[in-house]
């Protein structure tokens, strides 16, 4: 069913496209994601969180660290979400907390994706002993339960702040993505155009990163959003357990302090509810965007698979 090959050798010359400009490629990716309704909701939600994080000092009614308000106040007009046991404004904390979550999510997601790409692709392409060694290491990381490992590392590094949390999340988060990318690399490796690249005298490095990698864009983008979601949840989890720097303001530390002050027993359920809702909404927005990334999978790649 090759409708595109209607009149071979006489194709109209009008549809000639020059080499795609990188910005044009990015724009096309954005419009593709936007065209999926679920992903559109995700993009809007994520946009709100990012704007909130960037402009937090302008939006937040008070300084989030100021503790000169009444303690454990209920929701009032002055403090829309009440105040904490230490006398801080909860709404301001929520808005500022978005900064940490968004930052950790993107940076840790980015780093673990980069590691996953580097390891996954070379692991999938190589067929020698190195591949076996990588296989052993990746399996090791996959087998060890992530949360206990995170807790152990975080406890060992002692209150290192955001940098420490990013490091911990990256160390424990790359293996799954590497595994997925490896299997896709293995299937692309046997395609003729890869063999043809060997015949063109290309180095292995170039084959992996110029021939194979661009064909996996949607998988890598998907893997990034997955990793970012995991990172946001992990940050919240570690901070809640008190393993982060408890003086930074993030949704996780808010939960930690709320738990410490028995907020639920004093009827201040909003102290637990608000940061919890924010964490789940941010994670949801990324997952929704991932629906659009599924649809992003390159039509030209599908054309190569047909026949």
């Amino acid at each position: 069913m090759t409708l595109t090959d209607k009149s071979p050798d006489q194709k109209p010359m009008t549809d000639v496209a020059g080499p795609a400009h990188p910005l044009a490629v990015l724009w096309r990716a954005v419009t593709t994601i936007w065209s999926v309704p679920k992903a559109r909701i995700g993009v809007v939600m994520l946009g709100i969180f990012i704007l909130g994080a960037v402009f937090a000092p302008l939006i937040a009614p008070y300084d989030p660290t100021a503790n000169d308000f009444g303690r454990s106040e209920d929701m009032t007009a002055a403090h829309l979400l009440g105040t904490t046991a230490a006398g801080q404004d909860v709404l301001s904390q929520i808005i500022h907390g978005a900064r940490v979550s968004v930052f950790v999510g993107f940076v840790a997601g980015l780093f673990s994706t980069i590691i996953a790409v580097l390891i996954g692709l070379s692991w999938g392409y190589l067929r020698n002993v190195t591949a076996d060694v990588i296989n052993f290491i990746v399996n090791l990381f996959l087998v060890i339960p992530a949360l206990p490992l995170m807790i152990v590392i975080a406890a060992y590094l002692q209150n290192g702040g955001i940098g420490m949390i990013i490091l911990v999340v990256v160390i424990t988060g790359w293996a799954w993505g590497a595994r997925v990318l490896r299997s896709q690399t293995q299937s692309l490796r046997s395609r003729d155009f890869v063999t043809a690249a060997i015949f063109s005298g290309e180095s292995s490095f170039r084959i992996v990163f110029r021939e194979i990698l661009p064909n996996m864009t949607s998988l890598i983008v998907g893997s990034f959003f997955g990793a970012a979601t995991a990172a946001i949840l992990a940050e919240a989890g570690l901070s809640f357990l008190g393993l982060g720097d408890s003086t930074t303001i993030s949704w996780g530390t808010m939960l930690f302090w709320a738990q410490n002050s028995n907020a639920l027993l004093t009827g201040q359920w909003i102290l637990l509810f608000a940061p919890g809702l924010c964490i789940s909404l941010l994670a949801t927005s990324l997952s929704l965007i991932n629906f659009g990334v599924d649809g992003l999978s390159n039509p030209r790649l599908r054309e190569g698979a047909k026949r």
Binding site: D192, A196, R300, K306
Partner: peptide, 13 residues
């Protein structure tokens, strides 16, 4: 070498 399948012998991108 000239490959059998011109549809898979060229990188689509």
């Amino acid at each position: 070498m000239v490959f059998q399948d011109p549809y898979s012998a060229l990188n689509p991108l």
